[in-house]
Computed example of a mutant assay.
Amino acid sequence: MILAATVSALDPTAQVLLTIFGGALVATLGGLLGVSIQARRDHAKWVRERRYEAFITAIVLLRQVTVLMEEANKITAGSTEGTARGTDFTAVVSRAKELKTGWPEASAPLVVLGPDGVDKALGIAAEALGTDDPGALRAAERALVTTMRKALAIKE
């Protein structure tokens, strides 16, 4: 039995060059894939951080208005608790109105950063701000916070 020698159709120099450039190509593609994955992760992190900042700004404003409206209701109900602290009704209402004018600025990032559920809850909160009803404000705040937690993937 005669053994036939296997001879490559490629020149040995070509084989070496193909191996070198093939390895370089695989390394480059792997690097590009890694960069792409990292860029997506960084962008998702950036969006999550900006959403968090916007959410906090909106919730703080909503809570401040709610507290002021509750204080105004105490004063109008004749509660001595509000007047005992030297709270002036017109000053409280004036401050609440001043805070309400900041709502469009506080809510604009929420509209841009999304998601859509936050935008819907934001509309409900904006309607509640127009009612001057602390109960409606609290309910709108709870709905908004729940939607924000879902957007940030915060488990309860």
Rank of each mutant, 00 (worst) to 15 (best):
A44G: 08
A108Q: 11
A108E: 08
G102T: 02
E127I: 14
D42T: 13
T90R: 14
E53M: 12
A151R: 04
H43I: 15
A27H: 09
D132H: 06
L18A: 14
A4H: 11
K155V: 15
A5R: 12
A72L: 05
L3W: 02
I154S: 07
L18W: 05
P109G: 04
I59R: 06
L10E: 12
R138A: 14
T101S: 12
A96M: 02
L10C: 09
L68Q: 00
A153Q: 05
Q64L: 11
T76H: 04
L32P: 01
A24G: 10
V118F: 08
V111Q: 13
T13M: 11
V93I: 03
A121L: 08
A14P: 00
D132N: 11
R149G: 13
V35L: 15
T83C: 05
F21A: 01
L129C: 05
E105N: 09
L144Q: 12
S8W: 03
T80Y: 03
P12K: 03
V7K: 10
E49R: 12
E156F: 12
G135K: 02
D116R: 11
K100C: 08
A143Q: 11
R95Q: 04
A153E: 00
G31S: 09
K120N: 14
G31K: 00
I59Y: 06
D88Y: 00
T90N: 13
A143V: 08
R51V: 05
Y52S: 13
A128H: 01
L129Q: 01
I154P: 10
L110P: 09
H43D: 15
G22N: 06
I56Q: 14
Q38E: 12
S79I: 04
L99Y: 01
L113G: 02
G114D: 00
R149E: 08
I124H: 06
T90Y: 10
R50H: 13
G102H: 00
V112C: 02
A108D: 09
M1P: 10
A4I: 13
D116L: 15
L10Y: 06
A143S: 14
A84N: 07
L32S: 03
I56M: 13
A44M: 05
D132A: 13
H43L: 15
L32R: 08
